[in-house]
């Protein structure tokens, strides 16, 4: 039985495209960093939906039998790494935004034109 079809994977793709749309149209670098976070959430969603097993439970055996049906733990470890990566990248980019505003007094990406041609 397949209740959801490919919908979970499509939601992941949707998030990625929406995030890119935000980056394309962004008028504010803080907003752009937020859009990047949305785009990244697509990777979490895809990883975890790919690893889901119908009727499975988390492979954490402190309160369940080692014989229970479990979902794929590998993708969870990957998603965990990915979450950390996302947080650090966000922090670094926001630090750059702050300094850029300190020196340039604008955070509209379309008005930053020191580098052209």
């Amino acid at each position: 039985m397949n209740l959801l079809g490919p919908l979970p994977y499509l939601v992941a793709g949707w998030l990625l495209l929406v995030g890119v749309y935000g980056l394309v149209t962004s008028r504010n670098l803080i907003h752009a960093v937020g859009c990047l976070a949305v785009a990244q959430s697509s990777t979490y969603v895809l990883l975890l939906t790919v690893g889901f097993r119908r009727g499975g439970t988390a492979p954490v055996y402190s309160d369940t039998s080692p014989r229970s049906v479990v979902v794929d733990p590998v993708v969870q470890a990957l998603a965990l790494t990915d979450v950390v990566v996302g947080a650090t990248v966000t922090a670094l980019l926001l630090a750059l935004v702050i300094q850029l505003h300190n020196r340039h007094s604008t955070i509209d990406p379309d008005r930053l034109n020191a580098l052209r041609g």
Binding site: L48, F52, T57, A58, Q76, A79, L80, V83
Partner: peptide, 10 residues
């Protein structure tokens, strides 16, 4: 969503 997908750690 992650909880429903049985990924409490994430």
């Amino acid at each position: 969503l992650f909880t429903v997908l049985q990924a409490p750690d994430v």
